[in-house]
């Protein structure tokens, strides 16, 4: 790890002023991703501004029934929050299916959104990676790419966004609040992360001097009937091969009245499955309608030899999750 300066921020404005004048500085949340990447030599900030003692660790209920989550709320606290468990169960499930008890105790909401890909070649200093070194090439395309993406990929990059939490947040239409000394912005989560295109090193809309201060969840009745399913190579402590965040509600006619669907493990960013949602809305709940919607969403998928199975797996998992939610609804 390269030497750096360490600063402990206790005041948001001071932290923002500091980062504005130090372009080589980075914020340090739980450190569970950044410290690892620095140790591997993949990140080398000159200064770390420790933000974990900033007063951004509260969860507030909003008057409209939504929720405002401070950027420094620890993943485990968010997952355990009774309002999240009750009104947005799939968000809690997504978090609890990620990493481990220890890591969730350290990881922050802001850091989770900004965690970087686990592509084997991104993590290997001796391999070519456009994300690490623009223009270097992509060793993953013809290498081991079981973990890589099939949706939202480009010639330059096929790296998966690894977050589980962000997949549920994409389904919820969460909004990311960011601040800099220039002011405050609100960015919808589904637009927060960027597709790789020809610039895979640019991963989010966040500017280098901006701090994530909160994530806001809109009120979303359908989210009370939601489920997060994660499919992976062992029963726990592994990143997703495919994950599905879904919420489903029916009208009086028994047809689908509201639906939210997002995919993880298969895409270069948390993937809101709008094509599938549109097909499902107003449809009757059936294996067929679920499968058709899933297939339509995955129609744009571009497989690689090592991850082609994910297309079928994603479709099957979507169907299984929607089936489960349907059964639960008709049971209750």
């Amino acid at each position: 790890m390269k030497t750096f300066n360490y600063l402990r921020a206790t005041d948001v404005d001071v932290a923002l002023q500091r980062i504005a004048v130090e372009p080589g500085a980075r914020f340090l949340g739980g450190g569970t991703n950044l410290v690892d990447l620095m140790r591997e030599g993949i990140e080398a900030p000159e200064t770390l501004i420790d933000i974990t003692r900033l007063p951004l660790d509260g969860i507030e209920e909003l008057p409209d029934g939504g929720l405002r989550i401070g950027a420094l709320v620890r993943n485990s606290d968010l997952a355990a929050h009774p309002v999240v468990r009750g009104r947005y169960p799939f968000l809690s499930q997504a978090i609890l299916l990620g990493a481990t008890g220890q890591i969730r105790n350290m990881a922050t909401v802001g850091g989770n959104l900004l965690q970087r890909t686990r592509c084997l070649y991104f993590y290997d200093e001796a391999s070519a990676c456009n994300k690490r070194e623009p223009g270097a090439g992509c060793a993953a395309r013809e290498g081991f790419n079981r973990g890589n993406a099939v949706l939202g990929t480009s010639d330059a990059c096929v790296a998966t966004h690894p977050s589980d939490m962000a997949v549920a947040l994409a389904a919820i239409d969460a909004v990311v609040e960011v601040r800099s000394s220039r002011g405050t912005r609100h960015i919808p989560l589904t637009e927060f992360h960027l597709l790789p295109g020809t610039t895979p090193h640019l991963e989010s809309q966040l500017e280098s001097d901006e701090l994530i201060t909160a994530v806001e969840l809109p009120p979303l009745p359908v989210a009370a009937h939601s489920y997060y399913r994660k499919v992976r190579d062992r029963a726990s402590y592994a990143f997703a091969l495919v994950s599905v965040a879904a919420a489903l509600d029916f009208g009086a006619d028994g047809r689908i009245a509201d639906v939210r669907l997002a995919l993880g493990g298969v895409a270069t960013k948390p993937w809101r499955a709008r094509t599938a949602e549109q097909l499902l809305l107003g449809a009757a709940a059936s294996e067929d309608s679920f499968a058709t919607a899933a297939a339509a969403e995955l129609a744009a998928a571009v497989p690689l030899p090592g991850n082609a199975f994910k297309i079928d797996l994603a479709c099957r998992t979507v169907v299984a999750v929607l089936r489960r939610l349907t059964t639960e609804r008709s049971g209750s």
Binding site: Y6, R8, L28, G30, G31, T32, V35, D36, L48, D50, T52, T100, G101, Q102, I103, N105, M106
Partner: peptide, 18 residues
């Protein structure tokens, strides 16, 4: 794994200064 204020964390990803 160690405990910090009673909560378990992995100390390898924890910078001591923090």
């Amino acid at each position: 794994t160690v405990l910090v204020d009673g909560r378990r964390i992995v100390s390898c990803l924890a910078l001591a200064v923090q």
